[in-house]
Lab assay of single mutants.
Amino acid sequence: CHSECLGNCSQPDDPTKCVACRNFYLDGRCVETCPPPYYHFQDWRCVNFSFCQDLHHKCKNSRRQGCHQYVIHNNKCIPECPSGYTMNSSNLLCTPCLGPCPKVCHLLEGEKTIDSVTSAQELRGCTVINGSLIINIRGGNNLAAELEANLGLIEEISGYLKIRRSYALVSLSFFRKLRLIRGETLEIGNYSFYALDNQNLRQLWDWSKHNLTITQGKLFFHYNPKLCLSEIHKMEEVSGTKGRQERNDIALKTNGDQASCENELLKFSYIRTSFDKILLRWEPYWPPDFRDLLGFMLFYKEAPYQNVTEFDGQDACGSNSWTVVDIDPPLRSNDPKSQNHPGWLMRGLKPWTQYAIFVKTLVTFSDERRTYGAKSDIIYVQTDATNPSVPLDPISVSNSSSQIILKWKPPSDPNGNITHYLVFWERQAEDSELFELDYCLKGLKLPSRTWSPPFESEDSQKHNQSEYEDSAGECCSCPKTDSQILKELEESSFRKTFEDYLHNVVFVPRKT
């Protein structure tokens, strides 16, 4: 048989008469490798580009789960590009990614509803959504962080984005990388972005840091009482949809009607710091009717980097990364020049730590249904340095008659930039024990000054392991946590139920 035959053949030295091919099969003959313009397919066939392209389009058009959109890589027609490569849609070739590779997620039936953290986790790592997304989240724990972890990498949506009755959302900033909504599939009414009845939605994105392009379709905003109209108009300008909307697409009466839409800028007039305090004062603000001013709200939190936005980490279910302080308005003076500047002394802060701070007014709604208010920009203030805590785990070892090696770990709280350490030492008198000992005694162990690591005695271990207080009263049991108490109650309830079950099964009433 021919060298490319495997198993047997019907005619000697003829690659077209093989029972099976050793390498690849091409047009009725066995070959060692697939010549151009053919590609290896499933490690035994040679196919042309049209064959591989037909497989790709067949799966793409069917949208069946589990099928493969075949691509070409290293002269092979394979189910998908290997790690580190992405497909070129024009020629199906796998090309190296520039940075992290995109991950295209194809949605069944063309859309997916995100109504819980669990459903959001199914899209973790996706960068391109081939379909439409509907966000409908009523509640949950730590929602802002969970949504950002699972949806934060999405850069492109081919269909539309719909935010509907998501009472738990305060902001859409968890879509931190969303840059493009194509609108290839539109919501009824030709809408590519749809926001309806979101009672706590206050911000779409921080438009000073976020760009969003909507290729096709219109915007729809109705019944978002805490979303200011200025935020919607800003989205029109940034996304390129200005002029597409009709009169009733953006409701003037049901958007922002319960919001404090600040239209003035508060400026800080005085800032002073110490290692654990920050004193702030800002310019006074009074609405047209000074009785509408209820006070100020001061927001602050630790910020290692200057990239904080107002609604980071917030949701309507209680999660809030900001510390909020309510401040009463100052006494009002008739003389504008003698107006008191409101302020606040922030206490209990960490030394040498940068804080993000902003302040906003708290006002009631005027009778004319106009909203007044003022808010400052987010500023960054760093507390002063102070003395560091003591170095940890000092170790001293003498390696000769004239040297001592000293080692330690950095302090747990540096409280500033540590530039150097101060080492103090003092000579001590020799131990009298060394002169009084009889060095001729056998088995004498000389006193040693070398360091030995501390260890816990058996008594201390027994005390720590004991669940009861000892007789001397030195140790006591740790208080039980809520989960331990709940577990004990469940076990007790189970024992009672099981005992009742045994009584009912074992003891049967005697027939009379």
Score class of each variant (00 low, 15 high):
residue 123 L to R: 01
residue 287 P to I: 07
residue 340 N to V: 09
residue 380 Y to F: 09
residue 346 M to A: 08
residue 208 S to T: 06
residue 227 L to F: 06
residue 339 Q to T: 08
residue 268 F to K: 00
residue 400 S to P: 10
residue 103 K to T: 09
residue 286 W to T: 08
residue 205 W to L: 03
residue 347 R to L: 10
residue 383 T to M: 02
residue 408 W to M: 02
residue 290 F to S: 08
residue 400 S to H: 09
residue 341 H to N: 09
residue 263 N to A: 07
residue 398 S to K: 01
residue 329 P to S: 07
residue 384 D to L: 15
residue 123 L to K: 00
residue 385 A to H: 09
residue 295 G to Q: 15
residue 390 V to S: 09
residue 141 N to R: 10
residue 340 N to W: 09
residue 221 F to Y: 15
residue 251 A to D: 02
residue 189 G to K: 02
residue 156 E to D: 10
residue 331 L to R: 06
residue 271 I to L: 08
residue 407 K to G: 04
residue 394 P to W: 13
residue 147 L to H: 03
residue 249 D to G: 05
residue 257 D to G: 04
residue 382 Q to K: 10
residue 266 L to N: 01
residue 296 F to S: 06
residue 331 L to H: 08
residue 345 L to F: 13
residue 325 V to T: 14
residue 337 K to N: 15
residue 383 T to A: 02
residue 270 Y to S: 02
residue 187 E to I: 09
residue 293 L to Q: 10
residue 351 P to K: 11
residue 384 D to N: 05
residue 352 W to E: 07
residue 336 P to R: 15
residue 285 Y to T: 08
residue 294 L to W: 08
residue 154 I to Q: 00
residue 326 D to K: 03
residue 219 L to A: 10
residue 200 N to A: 03
residue 286 W to M: 03
residue 107 L to K: 04
residue 320 N to F: 09
residue 341 H to S: 09
residue 210 H to R: 15
residue 119 S to Q: 07
residue 220 F to G: 14
residue 367 D to Q: 12
residue 337 K to D: 15
residue 360 K to M: 07
residue 255 N to S: 12
residue 273 T to S: 08
residue 268 F to Y: 03
residue 324 V to H: 15
residue 297 M to N: 15
residue 394 P to L: 09
residue 266 L to D: 00
residue 143 L to I: 15
residue 179 R to M: 10
residue 190 N to E: 07
residue 237 E to N: 14
residue 262 E to R: 13
residue 258 Q to D: 15
residue 314 Q to P: 01
residue 400 S to V: 11
residue 288 P to H: 11
residue 154 I to Y: 00
residue 224 N to V: 02
residue 115 D to A: 05
residue 132 S to F: 00
residue 123 L to Y: 07
residue 361 T to Y: 15
residue 199 Q to K: 13
residue 211 N to L: 12
residue 348 G to K: 01
residue 286 W to L: 14
residue 315 D to S: 14
residue 121 Q to K: 10
residue 227 L to D: 00
residue 289 D to H: 13
residue 155 E to D: 07
residue 193 F to D: 01
residue 403 Q to K: 01
residue 347 R to I: 06
residue 238 V to K: 12
residue 280 L to V: 15
residue 174 F to R: 01
residue 244 R to Y: 15
residue 254 T to K: 13
residue 164 R to V: 06
residue 112 K to A: 11
residue 147 L to T: 02
residue 178 L to E: 00
residue 274 S to M: 12
residue 352 W to N: 03
residue 401 S to H: 11
residue 253 K to T: 08
residue 137 I to L: 15
residue 277 K to T: 06
residue 384 D to V: 15
residue 147 L to Q: 01
residue 131 G to V: 01
residue 231 E to C: 09
residue 282 W to I: 08
residue 358 F to T: 08
residue 371 T to L: 11
residue 378 I to K: 06
residue 213 T to D: 12
residue 263 N to F: 11
residue 322 W to I: 03
residue 209 K to F: 11
residue 323 T to P: 02
residue 198 N to L: 05
residue 270 Y to R: 02
residue 175 F to R: 00
residue 129 I to L: 11
residue 226 K to G: 06
residue 249 D to Y: 09
residue 217 G to Q: 05
residue 282 W to G: 00
residue 135 I to L: 03
residue 339 Q to Y: 01
residue 259 A to G: 04
residue 234 K to F: 08
residue 314 Q to E: 06
residue 304 P to N: 14
residue 174 F to V: 08
residue 253 K to V: 08
residue 194 Y to T: 11
residue 340 N to D: 14
residue 348 G to I: 02
residue 143 L to S: 06
residue 198 N to A: 11
residue 354 Q to Y: 07
residue 265 L to Y: 13
residue 232 I to C: 04
residue 127 T to S: 08
residue 319 S to G: 03
residue 327 I to Y: 13
residue 132 S to N: 05
residue 378 I to V: 14
residue 122 E to Q: 03
residue 206 D to M: 06
residue 114 I to Y: 05
residue 411 P to A: 14
residue 123 L to S: 01
residue 396 S to K: 13
residue 239 S to D: 02
residue 160 Y to L: 07
residue 333 S to Y: 04
residue 214 I to H: 02
residue 144 A to G: 05
residue 324 V to S: 03
residue 305 Y to S: 04
residue 135 I to Y: 01
residue 103 K to I: 07
residue 275 F to M: 05
residue 322 W to L: 04
residue 118 T to I: 03
residue 243 G to A: 14
residue 371 T to D: 04
residue 179 R to Y: 10
residue 321 S to G: 08
residue 289 D to R: 08
residue 379 I to R: 06
residue 287 P to D: 04
residue 364 T to S: 15
residue 124 R to L: 07
residue 374 A to E: 03
residue 275 F to L: 09
residue 153 L to R: 07
residue 320 N to D: 07
residue 134 I to T: 04
residue 208 S to A: 13
residue 243 G to W: 07
residue 153 L to M: 10
residue 214 I to Q: 12
residue 218 K to M: 01
residue 157 I to M: 11
residue 149 A to D: 09
residue 152 G to Q: 04
residue 109 E to K: 15
residue 368 E to A: 13
residue 255 N to W: 05
residue 216 Q to T: 11
residue 124 R to S: 10
residue 220 F to L: 09
residue 371 T to M: 11
residue 130 N to K: 05
residue 399 N to P: 14
residue 317 C to N: 03
residue 279 L to F: 13
residue 288 P to S: 08
residue 141 N to A: 08
residue 276 D to R: 01
residue 237 E to Q: 13
residue 274 S to N: 02
residue 243 G to Q: 15
residue 147 L to N: 03
residue 185 T to R: 07
residue 290 F to Q: 04
residue 373 G to S: 13
residue 402 S to I: 05
residue 281 R to I: 08
residue 405 I to G: 06
residue 158 S to W: 14
residue 292 D to L: 13
residue 294 L to H: 13
residue 215 T to L: 04
residue 257 D to L: 09
residue 360 K to C: 09
residue 162 K to A: 00
residue 229 L to R: 08
residue 301 K to S: 11
residue 180 L to V: 11
residue 391 P to Y: 01
residue 172 L to G: 02
residue 170 V to G: 13
residue 362 L to S: 15
residue 229 L to F: 15
residue 162 K to P: 00
residue 295 G to A: 09
residue 305 Y to C: 00
residue 220 F to K: 11
residue 317 C to T: 02
residue 363 V to R: 08
residue 244 R to T: 10
residue 127 T to E: 01
residue 258 Q to V: 12
residue 125 G to T: 05
residue 334 N to G: 05
residue 247 R to P: 07
residue 103 K to Y: 04
residue 248 N to S: 10
residue 361 T to P: 03
residue 379 I to W: 06
residue 183 G to I: 02
residue 137 I to A: 07
residue 303 A to V: 13
residue 359 V to Y: 03
residue 129 I to S: 01
residue 224 N to L: 07
residue 293 L to H: 04
residue 120 A to Y: 11
residue 388 P to H: 01
residue 246 E to R: 08
residue 131 G to H: 01
residue 180 L to Y: 12
residue 235 M to E: 00
residue 241 T to D: 11
residue 211 N to W: 09
residue 163 I to P: 00
residue 157 I to V: 05
residue 106 H to P: 09
residue 352 W to K: 14
residue 404 I to C: 02
residue 345 L to I: 15
residue 275 F to S: 09
residue 167 Y to Q: 14
residue 319 S to N: 07
residue 267 K to V: 11
residue 224 N to A: 02
residue 360 K to R: 12
residue 206 D to T: 03
residue 265 L to Q: 14
residue 126 C to G: 00
residue 277 K to S: 04
residue 269 S to P: 01
residue 250 I to E: 15
residue 388 P to I: 01
residue 290 F to A: 03
residue 158 S to H: 03
residue 258 Q to N: 15
residue 331 L to V: 12
residue 187 E to W: 12
residue 264 E to A: 05
residue 262 E to V: 14
residue 410 P to F: 12
residue 317 C to E: 04
residue 266 L to P: 01
residue 369 R to L: 10
residue 143 L to Q: 15
residue 309 T to Q: 08
residue 261 C to K: 03
residue 186 L to V: 04
residue 342 P to R: 08
residue 164 R to C: 15
residue 176 R to L: 05
residue 281 R to F: 07
residue 115 D to L: 02
residue 232 I to F: 00
residue 190 N to C: 07
residue 148 E to W: 01
residue 147 L to D: 00
residue 202 R to S: 12
residue 170 V to I: 12
residue 257 D to Y: 12
residue 266 L to H: 01
residue 279 L to M: 02
residue 351 P to L: 02
residue 160 Y to V: 12
